[in-house]
């Protein structure tokens, strides 16, 4: 098996909350692994810590605890000036392309900027490569002379993707890259991403709250709830056989764009608890329809399900009581 490009072990991130000395527990002991060429999808509702994890991996926010190994090297604590050359191999695409790009720079200069910082190229080489990159993200070359205000959201996101692939990175973190775009434009960007993935073999961490999108683009999916991983599985497996009660209800709340698709609905009660006062034991037990006494005191570890890549963190798996939909109908 190939060595993973990224290993995240027991990642914890706490943000101070006000002057009370309380903390927002954004990420609570997350383990992740991505192999080269793989796309890992990360889904969760707001406050599940998915963006924080993405940012912590690139050291855009400092982890409180845990270890991040990138390409065989522990990068958790290395100083900023040593981090800088590594950024060539790890890039990010953000949700809002309007605020991610400098409005005063021309599109061509924006795409060339990462090459200027990281690659030792002559001016003409860089200019050629800029045109080449623009073609790869399907932007017409005349756009290179324009400014970001002249482009639509979908075109700007193409610019962001061109910037991200300019240095041939080994890992690209995409934080909700299609959430601010219209449906048809979103489809085009997803298509472009799958094309880029085939060309470059870059590993991707695809963060989104939209299950349909994540299913489409990911090889494997991690489901997060309140800063913890609740389930990891191959994309198809997760959708056909979700094991964790939270994944089951999340998938049942997903509305496929087909009026004939039957909905096996299990609507969860209540809302996500505050990450300042995390529930004890399994953090999902306050909303879980199949929680037992033990769930409020014992935090479950990962349990292997049917195949070696499918894990769920639930105490009810061992006694088979983790199915919420069957309990509903019986």
């Amino acid at each position: 098996m190939t060595a993973p490009i990224l290993v995240v072990e027991d990642l914890v991130k706490r943000f101070p909350a006000g002057r009370s000395g309380a903390f927002v527990n954004a990420v609570n002991g997350v383990d992740l692994k991505i192999v080269p060429g793989e796309t890992l999808g990360m889904v969760g509702e707001s406050g599940s810590g998915k963006s924080t994890i993405g940012r912590a991996i690139l050291r855009l926010t400092e982890p409180t605890e845990g270890r991040i190994t990138f390409d065989g090297r522990d990068i958790t604590n290395i100083p900023a000036h040593k981090m800088r050359p590594l950024r060539r191999d790890m890039q990010m695409v953000f949700q809002d392309p309007w605020s991610a790009l400098n409005p005063r720079m021309r599109i061509g200069d924006l795409i060339a900027e990462p090459m200027k910082l990281h690659l030792d190229l002559s001016r003409s080489e860089r200019e050629n490569k800029t045109v080449d990159l623009a073609t790869r993200v399907h932007l017409r070359p005349e756009f290179l002379r324009r400014h970001s205000s002249d482009l639509s959201g979908g075109q700007l996101q193409r610019v962001c993707i061109a910037r991200a692939i300019a240095t041939n990175p080994k890992l690209i973190v995409l934080d909700e890259p299609t959430s601010s775009l219209d449906l048809s434009v979103r489809a085009e960007i997803l298509d472009l991403l799958s094309e880029i993935r085939q060309q470059t073999q870059a590993a991707m961490l695809f963060i989104s709250h939209d299950l349909g999108t994540v299913k489409l683009i990911s090889d494997r999916i991690v489901v997060l709830y309140l800063g913890s991983v609740v389930e990891t599985a191959r994309s198809q497996t997760l959708f056909s056989n979700p094991a964790h009660p939270y994944s089951q209800s999340l998938l049942s709340a997903h509305l496929p764009a087909d009026p004939k698709a039957e909905l096996a609905r299990h609507v969860l009660e209540g809302e996500v608890p505050s990450p300042i006062n995390l529930p004890s034991g399994c953090t999902f037990h306050t909303r879980c329809p199949v929680a037992i006494q033990k769930c409020s005191t014992h935090a479950p570890g990962p349990q292997q399900i049917d195949d070696p890549e499918h894990f769920a963190n639930c105490l009810r798996i061992s006694d088979g009581g983790n199915r919420i939909l069957s309990t509903e109908t019986s």
Partner: peptide, 22 residues
């Protein structure tokens, strides 16, 4: 048609379909 074709359920990755536009 293009709206419905752009939904994740029906989208074919790598088809290069031209769905959106200004």
């Amino acid at each position: 048609r293009s709206l419905i074709a752009a939904t994740p359920e029906r989208l074919q990755m790598g088809s290069g379909a031209k769905l959106g536009g200004q």
